[in-house]
Amino acid sequence: MKKQRLIMRTFILAILVAAVGYTLYANFMKDHKQRVEVGSQAPDFLLTDMQGNKHQLSEYKGKGVFLNFWGTWCPPCKKEMPYINNQYQQFKDQGVQVLSVDIQESELAVNQFAERFKLDFPIMIDKDKEVMTVYGVDKLPATFLIDKNGKVVKYFTGELTENMVREFMEKIKP
């Protein structure tokens, strides 16, 4: 009788705690809308670059992908772009691919920006913010490091220094 009561109480409390725990967890996750987590598979996407070439993430399997979200109007993006370009020159023969995704801007703005900084890597415009939404990007610039198996190794928001760019590329070098 007493034992039964203890089991009953434990059972009811466990249900209540589980319900409360779930609610708190869900509430916490709501504030941290990072959809792509480190260690998980990077969602595939297909975008067209300024030269009209199509780039699909899954086709870069076997290579490390340095995925950068940016905008011409964002000052830290302006600063880090030349660093990324420099390091891209060093690493592109070692199996590191830079894919840079501009968020919803005009082709003119992006082209002029690329020309001004003499950027060599493929630049694509995410016209409907679809890729941005799938990756849960909030603040720009945002960088995802994706290894040769298509797994996200690191996620970073904020301005990068040239050293960091080098370190990051070293990390995903296959």
Partner: peptide, 22 residues
């Protein structure tokens, strides 16, 4: 020809014309 386009124009801290947003 449009040499430069600033959709949301402002002068940056260094005095250069720039854009606040897209």
């Amino acid at each position: 020809e449009i040499l430069n386009y600033f959709p949301d124009f402002e002068f940056a801290k260094n005095g250069e014309p720039s854009t606040k947003s897209r």
